[in-house]
Amino acid sequence: MKNIFLYILLLSASGVFAQKTEGVIHYEYQINWIKMMKKLPFLTQEEKDRMENTWKNDPDPKQKMNLYFNEKETLYTWGQDQQEYEDENWKSRNRELIIHRNFETEKRTDMLEILGKTYLVQDSLKHIEWKVMNQIKEVAGYICMKAVAEDKVKGQKITAWFTGDIPVSGGPEQIYGLPGMILELDADDGTVTAVATSVELKKLDKELTLPKLKGKKVNNQQFDSVISTYINDSIKMQRNPYWAIRY
């Protein structure tokens, strides 16, 4: 907690009066497939080396994501020009993905298409145990401080860079809970990243309004059980679970 207070004090001397609490943040989401595959425990070192040599010159595609926000809520989804995903070799429709956080009511509403079906997760916000570090860097023109946590369901280390200049406790993907907006997210030492490329501070219209929701309704515990069971079963069957779920 001491690091958090030091960070807020630092910001007060460098622009806290310019705080804004409404707009849209544009992110680039990227998966490093070589790093992901090399973490699979059932692959031999020879298989991992061969895979790295085969793919090392192939660039990892970047997907555009948007996070709409005000002082009370956030909504994270595909970028408006990113409804389909394609590269040189293939093209497909993006899966359903709406991640909504209401910090005033402390409610979570996520519509996620995984494992061939759409889930509607509606429950209270989960507490994330953050440890704020001393490192500072600039992301998308904002001074950010580092924080780390662990995704206990997926067993992943989470690193976030957040800014108090946008005093909203939101962030990309399903990550939040810091005293400022997360502008850069790193899961599993660079296996997956979501990095803000620009921040538009503006009055929103209907961007935070949830569309008509669909899917199998589950709570936090039920959804976590679906994810953890699928990951464990996939590893036992020597399959990569992240072809079917979001990393």
Results as ranks from 00 to 15, higher is better:
residue 177 G to C: 03
residue 180 G to V: 06
residue 185 L to P: 03
residue 236 K to T: 10
residue 98 I to A: 13
residue 24 V to Y: 08
residue 226 V to P: 05
residue 154 K to S: 02
residue 48 K to I: 12
residue 27 Y to F: 00
residue 232 N to D: 12
residue 59 P to R: 07
residue 214 K to C: 14
residue 52 E to P: 00
residue 226 V to E: 04
residue 219 N to R: 07
residue 69 F to V: 01
residue 204 L to K: 10
residue 160 A to M: 07
residue 130 W to L: 03
residue 114 I to D: 05
residue 89 N to R: 14
residue 2 K to R: 06
residue 145 M to V: 08
residue 37 M to K: 02
residue 11 L to H: 14
residue 7 Y to W: 10
residue 155 G to N: 13
residue 138 E to P: 08
residue 25 I to R: 03
residue 108 R to N: 07
residue 8 I to F: 05
residue 166 I to F: 00
residue 109 T to M: 05
residue 184 E to F: 01
residue 68 Y to D: 03
residue 209 T to G: 09
residue 212 K to W: 08
residue 69 F to L: 02
residue 132 V to Y: 02
residue 134 N to K: 15
residue 154 K to V: 01
residue 219 N to C: 10
residue 77 T to W: 09
residue 192 V to D: 03
residue 193 T to V: 05
residue 225 S to E: 12
residue 153 V to Y: 11
residue 165 D to P: 02
residue 235 I to N: 10
residue 189 D to K: 14
residue 232 N to I: 11
residue 242 Y to K: 03
residue 81 D to C: 09
residue 153 V to G: 09
residue 126 K to V: 15
residue 244 A to W: 15
residue 243 W to I: 09
residue 133 M to S: 12
residue 45 Q to G: 03
residue 154 K to D: 01
residue 72 K to G: 11
residue 120 L to G: 07
residue 75 L to F: 10
residue 14 S to H: 05
residue 161 W to Y: 08
residue 155 G to D: 14
residue 12 S to K: 09
residue 143 I to C: 08
residue 101 R to L: 14
residue 68 Y to P: 01
residue 106 E to W: 06
residue 199 V to C: 06
residue 34 I to M: 07
residue 176 Y to I: 00
residue 106 E to P: 06
residue 204 L to D: 10
residue 85 Y to E: 06
residue 242 Y to E: 08
residue 10 L to M: 14
residue 238 Q to M: 05
residue 55 W to E: 13
residue 108 R to S: 05
residue 67 L to W: 02
residue 141 G to H: 07
residue 30 Q to F: 15
residue 82 Q to N: 15
residue 48 K to F: 08
residue 14 S to K: 01
residue 84 E to D: 10
residue 88 E to M: 13
residue 34 I to L: 05
residue 16 V to G: 11
residue 36 M to T: 00
residue 246 R to Q: 11
